[in-house]
Amino acid sequence: MNIFRLTGDLSHLAAIIILLLKIWKTRSCAGISGKSQLLFALVFTTRYLDLFTSFISLYNTSMKLIYVACSYATVYLIYMKFKATYDGNHDTFRVEFLVVPVGGLSFLVNHDFSPLEILWTFSIYLESVAILPQLFMISKTGEAETITTHYLFFLGLYRALYLINWIWRYYFEGFFDLIAVVAGVVQTILYCDFFYLYVTKVLKGKKLSLPA
Protein backbone atom coordinates (compact mmCIF):
# COMPACT_ATOMS: atom_id res chain seq x y z
CA MET A 1 0.00 0.00 0.00
CA ASN A 2 1.51 3.31 -1.10
CA ILE A 3 0.20 6.85 -0.73
CA PHE A 4 -1.10 7.01 -4.32
CA ARG A 5 -3.06 3.81 -3.94
CA LEU A 6 -4.53 4.97 -0.61
CA THR A 7 -5.49 8.44 -1.83
CA GLY A 8 -6.88 6.80 -4.98
CA ASP A 9 -9.14 4.59 -2.89
CA LEU A 10 -10.19 7.52 -0.71
CA SER A 11 -10.86 9.63 -3.78
CA HIS A 12 -13.05 6.82 -5.13
CA LEU A 13 -14.85 6.64 -1.81
CA ALA A 14 -15.31 10.42 -1.77
CA ALA A 15 -16.88 10.31 -5.25
CA ILE A 16 -19.33 7.59 -4.22
CA ILE A 17 -20.30 9.38 -0.99
CA ILE A 18 -20.65 12.77 -2.74
CA LEU A 19 -23.10 11.27 -5.22
CA LEU A 20 -25.11 9.49 -2.53
CA LEU A 21 -25.29 12.63 -0.38
CA LYS A 22 -26.22 14.83 -3.33
CA ILE A 23 -29.16 12.60 -4.19
CA TRP A 24 -30.18 12.16 -0.56
CA LYS A 25 -29.95 15.83 0.46
CA THR A 26 -31.67 17.24 -2.63
CA ARG A 27 -34.14 14.33 -2.76
CA SER A 28 -33.41 14.28 -6.48
CA CYS A 29 -31.26 12.43 -8.98
CA ALA A 30 -31.72 15.01 -11.74
CA GLY A 31 -28.72 15.09 -14.07
CA ILE A 32 -27.43 11.72 -12.89
CA SER A 33 -27.20 8.84 -15.35
CA GLY A 34 -28.92 5.82 -13.81
CA LYS A 35 -27.32 3.74 -16.53
CA SER A 36 -23.79 4.64 -15.43
CA GLN A 37 -24.72 3.82 -11.84
CA LEU A 38 -26.19 0.46 -12.90
CA LEU A 39 -22.95 -0.28 -14.74
CA PHE A 40 -20.88 0.62 -11.65
CA ALA A 41 -23.04 -1.69 -9.52
CA LEU A 42 -22.36 -4.43 -12.09
CA VAL A 43 -18.63 -3.57 -12.02
CA PHE A 44 -18.40 -3.95 -8.24
CA THR A 45 -20.53 -7.09 -8.18
CA THR A 46 -18.45 -8.93 -10.77
CA ARG A 47 -15.12 -7.69 -9.39
CA TYR A 48 -15.58 -8.41 -5.70
CA LEU A 49 -16.75 -12.01 -5.96
CA ASP A 50 -13.34 -12.85 -4.48
CA LEU A 51 -14.86 -11.72 -1.18
CA PHE A 52 -16.25 -15.25 -1.05
CA THR A 53 -13.02 -17.02 -1.95
CA SER A 54 -10.12 -15.15 -0.37
CA PHE A 55 -9.27 -12.78 2.44
CA ILE A 56 -6.67 -10.08 1.74
CA SER A 57 -7.01 -7.70 4.69
CA LEU A 58 -9.63 -6.04 6.84
CA TYR A 59 -9.11 -2.84 4.82
CA ASN A 60 -9.62 -4.69 1.55
CA THR A 61 -12.77 -6.48 2.68
CA SER A 62 -14.31 -3.39 4.29
CA MET A 63 -13.71 -1.16 1.28
CA LYS A 64 -15.09 -3.74 -1.13
CA LEU A 65 -18.23 -4.12 0.99
CA ILE A 66 -18.65 -0.34 1.28
CA TYR A 67 -18.27 0.18 -2.49
CA VAL A 68 -20.79 -2.56 -3.27
CA ALA A 69 -23.29 -1.38 -0.66
CA CYS A 70 -23.04 2.27 -1.75
CA SER A 71 -23.41 1.43 -5.44
CA TYR A 72 -26.57 -0.57 -4.74
CA ALA A 73 -27.91 2.19 -2.50
CA THR A 74 -27.32 4.70 -5.32
CA VAL A 75 -29.14 2.52 -7.85
CA TYR A 76 -31.99 2.08 -5.36
CA LEU A 77 -32.32 5.84 -4.86
CA ILE A 78 -32.34 6.52 -8.60
CA TYR A 79 -34.65 3.75 -9.80
CA MET A 80 -36.90 3.33 -6.75
CA LYS A 81 -37.02 6.00 -4.07
CA PHE A 82 -36.49 9.11 -6.22
CA LYS A 83 -37.57 7.59 -9.53
CA ALA A 84 -39.86 10.58 -10.21
CA THR A 85 -36.84 12.87 -10.41
CA TYR A 86 -34.82 10.57 -12.68
CA ASP A 87 -34.18 12.22 -16.03
CA GLY A 88 -34.61 9.10 -18.17
CA ASN A 89 -35.33 11.09 -21.33
CA HIS A 90 -31.76 12.34 -21.38
CA ASP A 91 -30.21 9.07 -20.21
CA THR A 92 -30.34 7.44 -23.62
CA PHE A 93 -26.89 5.90 -24.03
CA ARG A 94 -27.19 2.35 -25.38
CA VAL A 95 -25.42 0.34 -22.68
CA GLU A 96 -25.54 -2.87 -24.71
CA PHE A 97 -22.94 -1.22 -26.98
CA LEU A 98 -20.61 -1.27 -23.97
CA VAL A 99 -21.58 -4.46 -22.15
CA VAL A 100 -21.57 -6.80 -25.17
CA PRO A 101 -18.13 -5.88 -26.60
CA VAL A 102 -16.64 -5.69 -23.10
CA GLY A 103 -18.10 -9.12 -22.32
CA GLY A 104 -16.61 -10.55 -25.50
CA LEU A 105 -13.22 -8.96 -24.86
CA SER A 106 -13.05 -10.31 -21.32
CA PHE A 107 -13.44 -13.83 -22.72
CA LEU A 108 -10.71 -13.24 -25.29
CA VAL A 109 -8.12 -11.24 -23.33
CA ASN A 110 -7.68 -12.30 -19.70
CA HIS A 111 -5.00 -13.62 -17.36
CA ASP A 112 -6.70 -16.96 -16.79
CA PHE A 113 -9.70 -18.63 -18.41
CA SER A 114 -11.59 -19.24 -15.18
CA PRO A 115 -15.03 -17.90 -14.22
CA LEU A 116 -13.85 -15.59 -11.44
CA GLU A 117 -10.92 -14.25 -13.48
CA ILE A 118 -13.12 -13.61 -16.53
CA LEU A 119 -15.66 -11.76 -14.36
CA TRP A 120 -12.84 -9.72 -12.79
CA THR A 121 -11.53 -8.87 -16.28
CA PHE A 122 -15.06 -7.97 -17.38
CA SER A 123 -15.37 -5.59 -14.43
CA ILE A 124 -12.03 -3.92 -15.21
CA TYR A 125 -12.96 -3.36 -18.87
CA LEU A 126 -16.49 -2.27 -18.00
CA GLU A 127 -15.34 0.20 -15.36
CA SER A 128 -13.12 1.93 -17.89
CA VAL A 129 -16.16 2.89 -19.98
CA ALA A 130 -18.98 2.88 -17.40
CA ILE A 131 -18.94 6.67 -17.09
CA LEU A 132 -19.79 7.16 -20.79
CA PRO A 133 -23.61 7.25 -20.24
CA GLN A 134 -23.06 10.01 -17.66
CA LEU A 135 -20.75 12.03 -19.94
CA PHE A 136 -23.18 11.45 -22.83
CA MET A 137 -26.02 12.77 -20.69
CA ILE A 138 -24.06 15.92 -19.83
CA SER A 139 -23.16 16.48 -23.47
CA LYS A 140 -26.86 16.08 -24.35
CA THR A 141 -28.22 18.51 -21.76
CA GLY A 142 -25.16 20.77 -22.16
CA GLU A 143 -24.71 21.28 -18.43
CA ALA A 144 -24.05 19.66 -15.09
CA GLU A 145 -24.72 20.70 -11.53
CA THR A 146 -21.55 21.71 -9.70
CA ILE A 147 -21.91 18.90 -7.16
CA THR A 148 -22.13 16.42 -10.05
CA THR A 149 -18.87 17.80 -11.42
CA HIS A 150 -17.21 17.27 -8.00
CA TYR A 151 -18.39 13.66 -8.17
CA LEU A 152 -16.89 13.23 -11.63
CA PHE A 153 -13.65 14.92 -10.60
CA PHE A 154 -13.04 12.53 -7.70
CA LEU A 155 -14.05 9.55 -9.81
CA GLY A 156 -11.53 10.53 -12.50
CA LEU A 157 -8.86 11.44 -9.94
CA TYR A 158 -9.15 7.96 -8.42
CA ARG A 159 -8.04 6.18 -11.60
CA ALA A 160 -5.37 8.78 -12.32
CA LEU A 161 -3.90 8.13 -8.85
CA TYR A 162 -4.06 4.40 -9.52
CA LEU A 163 -1.92 4.96 -12.61
CA ILE A 164 0.77 6.58 -10.45
CA ASN A 165 0.33 3.71 -7.98
CA TRP A 166 1.02 1.21 -10.77
CA ILE A 167 4.18 3.07 -11.83
CA TRP A 168 5.26 3.01 -8.16
CA ARG A 169 4.49 -0.69 -7.81
CA TYR A 170 6.29 -1.51 -11.04
CA TYR A 171 9.49 0.14 -9.82
CA PHE A 172 9.41 -0.88 -6.16
CA GLU A 173 7.55 -4.21 -6.17
CA GLY A 174 7.96 -5.47 -9.72
CA PHE A 175 4.17 -5.60 -9.91
CA PHE A 176 2.62 -5.13 -13.33
CA ASP A 177 -0.90 -6.00 -14.47
CA LEU A 178 -1.26 -5.16 -18.15
CA ILE A 179 -5.06 -5.55 -18.23
CA ALA A 180 -5.59 -3.19 -15.30
CA VAL A 181 -3.05 -0.67 -16.62
CA VAL A 182 -4.40 -0.48 -20.18
CA ALA A 183 -8.00 -0.23 -18.95
CA GLY A 184 -6.93 2.33 -16.36
CA VAL A 185 -5.23 4.47 -19.00
CA VAL A 186 -8.36 4.34 -21.20
CA GLN A 187 -10.53 5.21 -18.21
CA THR A 188 -8.36 8.18 -17.24
CA ILE A 189 -8.22 9.48 -20.82
CA LEU A 190 -12.04 9.57 -20.94
CA TYR A 191 -11.95 12.08 -18.08
CA CYS A 192 -9.35 14.42 -19.61
CA ASP A 193 -11.83 16.64 -21.43
CA PHE A 194 -13.90 16.85 -18.28
CA PHE A 195 -10.82 17.63 -16.12
CA TYR A 196 -10.08 20.55 -18.42
CA LEU A 197 -13.59 21.97 -18.04
CA TYR A 198 -13.51 21.34 -14.29
CA VAL A 199 -10.29 23.31 -13.81
CA THR A 200 -11.12 26.14 -16.22
CA LYS A 201 -14.74 26.58 -15.16
CA VAL A 202 -15.92 24.88 -11.98
CA LEU A 203 -12.86 25.74 -9.88
CA LYS A 204 -13.29 29.38 -10.93
CA GLY A 205 -16.82 29.36 -9.56
CA LYS A 206 -18.65 28.96 -12.84
CA LYS A 207 -21.26 26.35 -13.63
CA LEU A 208 -20.23 23.65 -16.05
CA SER A 209 -22.13 24.34 -19.24
CA LEU A 210 -21.16 23.38 -22.74
CA PRO A 211 -21.55 25.61 -25.78
CA ALA A 212 -24.69 24.71 -27.73
Binding site: R5, D9, H12, R47, D50, T53, S54, F55, I56, S57, N60, M63, K64, Y67, H111, D112, S114, L116, E117, W120, Y162, F175, F176, D177, L178, A180
Partner: peptide
Protein backbone atom coordinates in the same frame (compact mmCIF):
# COMPACT_ATOMS: atom_id res chain seq x y z
CA UNK B 1 -1.43 -10.00 -8.29
CA UNK B 2 -1.68 -11.04 -11.91
CA UNK B 3 -3.96 -13.89 -12.82
CA UNK B 4 -4.64 -15.04 -9.29
CA UNK B 5 -7.97 -15.05 -7.57
CA UNK B 6 -8.23 -12.56 -4.74
CA UNK B 7 -6.99 -9.11 -5.73
CA UNK B 8 -5.37 -6.72 -3.30
CA UNK B 9 -6.37 -3.68 -5.34
CA UNK B 10 -9.88 -2.33 -5.41
Amino acid sequence: GQGVEGKDEL
